[in-house]
């Protein structure tokens, strides 16, 4: 066992990268749930994003185009969910589960020609001399643009939900859709847009795995990250900054346990592997003990009458 092999600076830098797929997907799902929709299809939208992003990046040679395609792919798949739940009033839980299964299958089909292909890599942003600073250089100024985009997205979602009229209308629709309808707000339109936003975020989260984290394509490579993102939203009490905290905690422990495995710590690998899930959920459960409730209309179907 050699704990000195673990470099804390590299560990922190790596956890930020490990957390980004969850962060992107959970932030999107937070907006969806704030609008009163429970979309359990995050995993499916992520894997579709992963293959769309991968394929387009390989064909075009541009990882940025790949991310745009991943967002579009996730959003298009989420439109299927919007169609089922908003227009035909299908059950949201069943539709979300179906979306995940469909996404996993479709992505395997789309990805058949891409197994073993290497995607173009996305360069880190250069901050000039800042990137060379000791300690904070690699931690703060040594990442790819999508990671910074994820952080800005959290801040933007927080600010929009809290300070803008669009955010207020979104929260109102999620809190009481009948009242929002009576006031003349377009409940279905708002929700469809929120679902598409969630799909785009999940798609980018998936592409982050296939283009930056791993970089290659394998079937089912999202490996349950979408489900963690879903749980994160609930345990974070629908608060954007807590989603960030939860995602970094999860990413951090994932990275730490990998390092511990590498260092040969005398704990069975199975315990180490389950630790990120366990610790993230315990911490967020303790945090969510304060008075904070789910959006009032979460998961309830809306049908305009009268």
């Amino acid at each position: 066992m050699d704990l000195s092999a673990i470099n804390p600076i590299l560990l922190i830098a790596a956890l930020m990268s490990a957390a980004t797929p969850i962060l992107l997907a959970a932030t999107g799902e937070l907006v969806v749930e704030k609008a009163g929709i429970l979309n359990l299809g995050v995993e499916g939208m992520m894997i579709i994003g992963a293959i769309c992003g991968f394929a387009v990046a390989v064909e075009s040679g541009s990882p940025v185009t790949g991310f745009v395609a991943a967002a579009a792919g996730g959003a298009v798949l989420s439109l299927l969910f919007a169609l089922l739940t908003q227009l035909t009033l299908a059950n949201q839980v069943a539709s979300g589960l179906a979306l995940t299964l469909f996404g996993l299958g479709l992505s395997a089909l789309l990805g058949q020609g891409y197994v073993g292909v290497k995607p173009p890599s996305m360069p880190d942003i250069s901050f000039g001399f800042l990137s060379d600073l000791p300690v904070i250089g690699p931690i703060i100024f040594g990442h790819d643009p999508v990671l910074y985009f994820g952080l800005m997205l959290v801040a933007a979602v927080w600010a929009v939900l809290r300070f803008t009229r669009a955010g207020l209308v979104l929260r109102a629709v999620g809190e009481n859709h009948d009242a929002a309808h009576a006031l003349g707000y377009k409940v279905i339109r708002v929700r469809t847009l929120a679902i598409m936003f969630g799909g785009a975020c999940a798609g980018m989260g998936g592409a982050y795995i296939s283009l930056i984290r791993v970089p290659q394509w394998t079937e089912g490579m999202t490996a349950g990250v979408g489900w963690i993102a879903l749980a994160l939203v609930v345990f974070a009490s629908w608060k954007p900054w807590r989603v960030l905290l939860g995602a970094y905690l999860f990413g951090g422990i994932t990275q730490l346990q990998l390092n511990l495995q590498g260092a040969g710590v005398a704990i069975p690998v199975e315990y180490l592997a389950m630790s990120p899930y366990l610790i993230t959920i315990v911490v967020l459960v303790i945090l969510s003990a304060d008075k904070s409730a789910a959006p009032g209309s979460l998961g309830r179907p809306f049908h305009a009458s009268g």
Binding site: R165, L168, V169, R171, A172, E175, N176, D178, A179, A180, A182, L183, G184, Y185, A293, P295, G296
Partner: peptide
């Protein structure tokens, strides 16, 4: 509303989790 008609509903069209001011802003 723009023509000057206001309505107070029988079953209140309010949002429990929002503040008084936010509820009013929505209308």
């Amino acid at each position: 509303r723009a023509s000057g008609v206001g309505m107070v509903f029988q079953h209140f069209s309010l949002f429990d989790a929002l503040t008084v001011a936010e509820n009013i802003a929505l209308g």
